[in-house]
Design a protein around this nucleic acid. Structure first.
Length: 898
RNA sequence: GGGCUCGUGGUCUAGCUGGUCAUGACGCGGCCUUUACAAGGCCGAGGUCGGUGGUUCGAACCCGCCCGAGCCCA
């Protein structure tokens, strides 16, 4: 079908118009050449560039805060799907409401990018100086970003590529550090020594989202502890643990308050075997009585419950494991062993000593670092926190103030906040990140923060802004080595996009583009509501006092063809590259529009062919329109019925589509538009129009509808609509910023008034005649000698006659001669039910068995001792036509063929 | 283990503030070259609406339980 131009570069191979870069309707549609050409031109000619105007009314700007993809690999289906949904909104709003900001960024600071760098270069960050390693990260990220950008641009999204940022760039570093200082000054950040999740292999603290569960084999060990206190009923008790190497770190023993069997232990002291230190026995309802003996030891730290107890009961720290999972001097003879070695050795010694009472194999879920699959430890260290627990109610209120698409997703946000138990830990012991703008007094540990005017700073190379500690006067300072958590920065994207900054002279925060904030839309997947969206609300709300988004749109996940999650280990990942090499981007977009926003949906290759077919249909229909009507016909004084009908139907479609798109109901809009375009316009109207091409009324309607269809399809199918638009309706394709279909005004209903019932009936009659021909194996253009119609088809007689090749069409004044008998009685249950209640069953069976009477004069139905008024029932008649020819009945007409 | 969501012809889906024949697409079967499109047009077959119990005159829709899938959190 297409010209043989495998590498369509637009360089003029001379093969086809598409390849040479001239928009044209000649030949078939060649998406490969056309799509690339427009993608390049849209970017090169700034068609989607946002021009800021601080004075602009914020209501006329539609600003999207796109979450910047984490630089950790290549573009996947989730990126493709998410950004396509965003683009539907952006393109619709651009046409409907004017200025749109559709920005783009990369989240390339933090652990994900470090990991990528280590994998890519096969190195470990510990092997490098921090600066060196950061440099390597920048290089690797830059490569990935260039490739990613290229692929994003191949998706044809209307991103303003002038408005891009990286979260590691100096401008963003400044904003991120400003954010830190502002929150610190507002008293919403604190530094505290507390447990953090630690990967002993990578030797760093990691965040909770970097952990995953893994099913591992292990052993349960029953270990006897002596009761150290005198005068008790028993000398010992038994605890169960999977981590016997932690007994040197044991700080207490817990019993459930409802555990009557072990209640006697509470308040006593326990002596730890081998090590001999004594710990208190405490009651706490967090004990799982079902597990083991119901008595549990608490260590520094075996799991998160140990941390809770440590904090709740103000327990001491006994650190037996260091940062590389090696036993410390606290472990005595076991010092220097790895945790695994120590575990075996201690179990053996416990056994020798007689303290090991039982040991059996189990399999349980272990929390491991997602990257290296090493089981995590918990280590106490000084970390920075953002206080959030005290503002839960405000964050809930912020969530309620946003419009959620779909609405049901709000509950996830709500439950997340309600379940919060920890403040937000923002410090990371990593290399590649944004540094804390903080130094500490070497003497008193007082935190010295940077001056806002100096940001961004790196305390490792920059000097603190004071000569002496304001607290104790010492002049020796230690730089903070930690960097911010990735989310501490990526939660600032609305402020980054709006150009948030500190004005030194005015001593206030300012925005370069205040008209953008708050943003109109925040799109993202449902998996990141709880951290990314939430953190962004927290940060922006605390800084500006405003909710950063008017609305949030939550997209579902793309699953594989069997509705299962795509994952590398399952090997069911579909690569966007493969899809795009086989199908036009517009077809992929059509597929992306098929799911309701928020629902997960499967990738199915055959769905893409539906999109391909639509492109072909749109192309071919455009060619036909071009042969039927001049491109700029005059508007006639009076439109004829059939043409007015089409435009009135079009008005309805426009109104409905506008509503749907405003509500982000892309799937509904897509189906509504497809049905109207394909069935009503192509199948019905175009066939009629072929017989009326000389009519000025039809020419005008054809062109009006065609232009409108291109505009309505433009948000969904930007490439093919641009190609057709430029080929047919643009006289100057050079000035794309002004002539692109994507900067046109969204259509609005024109107020056409038509007899929709007559049009609908006429289409029914045509459909009936088609069926007749089909059933009688006649060609659709076969002549029909004589057709009579009883029904409201005023004004559509010629249309029916011409399109169905009817020699003689008669409109009957009266219903044709028929003998009728009652075939069925339809009841209006919606009013019948409430009125008659349980009597409905009797009425039904009365009709079923024929025990009823229809009183035509009174207009009532008598059944089961009741009298039903005329509006409660419909009598369906079966007609037998006894006249000449064949009778066909439709919903609202009777057709007789002779 | 907890929360949220989903489960409709072979496949994907609409409908889900309860009320006449459950929507459309893909696939399947048959027929047909209407002034573009046969990758098109027309027609047809195909569903105990995950299972089960309940509320109701009436349930795909409301409620309980169960099964399966997904996400988030323990």
């Amino acid at each position: 079908m297409s010209a043989d131009s495998p590498e369509a570069t637009g360089e003029g191979d001379g093969e086809s118009d598409a390849a040479t870069g001239e928009p044209s309707l000649e030949g078939g549609y060649d998406p490969e050449a056309v799509e690339n050409r427009w993608q390049d031109r849209w970017v090169d000619e700034d068609v989607y560039a946002y021009e800021s105007d601080p004075e602009r009314d914020p209501n006329t700007v539609y600003a999207i805060d796109t979450p910047p993809p984490t630089v950790s690999g290549s573009l996947h289906m989730g990126h493709l799907y998410g950004s396509t949904l965003q683009d539907f909104a952006a393109r619709f709003q651009r046409m409907a409401d004017g200025e749109v900001l559709f920005p783009f960024g990369y989240d390339d600071n933090g652990i994900a990018s470090e990991r990528l760098t280590e994998d890519e270069l096969d190195i470990r960050h510990q092997e490098y100086e921090r600066r060196e390693f950061q440099e390597l990260c920048r290089e690797v990220c830059a490569e990935y970003e260039a490739e990613f950008t290229d692929k994003m641009q191949n998706l044809g999204t209307s991103i303003d590529w002038n408005e891009t940022y990286k979260t590691i760039e100096p401008r963003v570093q400044r904003i991120s550090q400003l954010s830190f200082l502002d929150l610190y000054e507002k008293g919403r950040e604190y530094r505290k020594k507390a447990p953090a999740i630690w990967c002993p292999d990578c030797e760093t603290a990691i965040s909770q989202v970097e952990m995953e569960d893994d099913e591992r084999g292990s052993h349960f060990n029953d270990i006897a502890f002596e009761v150290a206190t005198d005068g008790t009923d028993r000398d010992e008790f038994v605890i169960s643990t999977t981590r016997p190497e932690l007994i040197p770190a044991c700080v207490s023993v817990f019993v459930h308050p409802d555990d009557e069997e072990n209640q006697d232990l509470v308040g006593e002291e326990a002596r730890i075997p081998i090590f001999g230190h004594e710990v208190p026995i405490i009651a706490d309802e967090r004990v799982d009585m079902e597990k083991g003996t119901g008595v549990v030891m608490c260590c520094t730290f075996g799991d998160q419950k140990d941390i809770e107890w440590y904090q709740a009961h103000d327990l001491p720290l006994r650190v037996a494991i260091d940062e590389s999972a090696t036993m410390t001097d606290l472990a005595g003879d076991y010092e220097g062993l790895s945790t695994e070695e120590a575990r075996e050795a201690i179990v053996e010694d416990l056994d020798d000593e007689g303290s090991l009472r039982d040991r059996w194999e189990i399999s349980h879920a272990v929390q491991v670092h997602e990257r290296c699959e090493t089981p995590v430890e918990f280590r106490v260290s000084k970390q920075w926190y953002v206080e959030i627990l005290d503002h839960k109610e405000e964050y809930l209120e912020a969530g309620r103030e946003m419009d959620w698409y779909p609405e049901k997703m709000y509950t996830r946000y709500q439950h997340w906040i309600e379940g919060l138990e920890w403040d937000w830990l923002i410090s990371r012991q990593r290399d590649s990140g944004i540094p804390f703008p903080v130094w500490y007094c070497a003497d008193c540990d007082e935190a010295i923060t940077a001056e806002k005017a100096d940001l961004p700073v790196d305390p490792l190379s920059d000097e603190p802004p004071v000569d002496a500690c304001p607290e104790c006067g010492a002049d020796d300072f230690v730089a903070e080595e930690d960097v911010f958590d990735t989310w501490a920065t990526s939660s600032l994207t609305p402020l980054i996009n709006a150009g948030w900054d500190w004005d030194e002279d005015g001593e206030e925060f300012t925005m370069e583009k205040p008209e953008l904030y708050p943003f109109d839309l925040r799109p993202q997947g449902h998996d990141i509501i709880s951290f990314w969206l939430f953190h962004t609300v927290v940060k922006c709300y605390e800084h500006t006092g405003e909710v950063p988004f008017d609305a949030t749109m939550i997209n579902g996940h793309v699953l594989d063809e069997n509705r299962e999650k795509m994952s590398k280990s399952k090997g069911n990942v579909v690569e966007p590259d493969e899809v795009l090499s086989e199908y036009p981007v517009d077809a992929v977009r059509f597929w992306a529009a098929s799911a309701a926003v928020g629902d997960d949906f499967p990738y199915q290759e055959k769905d893409l062919t539906a999109g391909e077919k639509l492109l072909r249909k749109l192309w071919n229909a455009s060619k036909l329109v071009d042969t039927l009507a001049p491109r700029e016909p005059d508007e006639p004084e009076e439109l004829e019925a059939i043409d007015r009908w089409l435009l009135a139907e079009l008005d309805d479609a426009v109104a409905e589509l506008t509503d749907m798109l405003e509500e982000y109901e892309f799937a509904k809009a897509r189906d509504r538009l497809r049905t109207f375009f394909w069935n009503t316009f192509c199948d019905d109207y175009l066939e009629i129009a072929k017989t009326r091409e000389d009519e000025p009324s039809t020419q005008y309607a054809l062109r009006t509808a065609h232009r409108t269809f291109l505009e309505l399809w433009a948000p969904f199918l930007p490439h093919v609509t641009e190609e057709i638009w430029q080929a047919v309706y643009s006289d100057d394709s050079e000035d794309l910023e002004a002539t692109s279909i994507h900067v046109r005004d969204w259509p609005s209903p024109q107020g056409y008034d038509a007899d929709l019932e007559a049009g609908e009936t006429a289409m029914e009659v045509i459909s009936a005649l088609r069926r007749y021909k089909s059933e009688n194996q006649l060609p659709l253009n076969a002549d029909l000698e004589s057709v009579s119609v009883y029904g409201p088809i005023e004004g559509f007689e010629d249309a029916i006659r011409n399109v169905m090749h009817v020699q003689e069409l008669t409109v009957l004044e009266d219903e044709p001669e028929v003998t009728t008998e009652v075939a069925n009685i339809d009841l209006d249950y919606s009013t019948l039910g409430p009125k008659f209640g349980s009597k409905v069953g009797e009425i039904d069976s009365g009709i079923e068995s024929g025990e009823y009477e229809i009183d035509d004069d009174a207009g009532v139905l008598r059944v089961a001792g009741e009298e039903l008024e005329g509006d409660l029932f419909d009598v369906e008649l079966e007609r037998t036509y006894s006249g000449a020819g064949e009778m066909i009945e439709t919903e609202s007409a009777v057709v007789v063929l002779e």
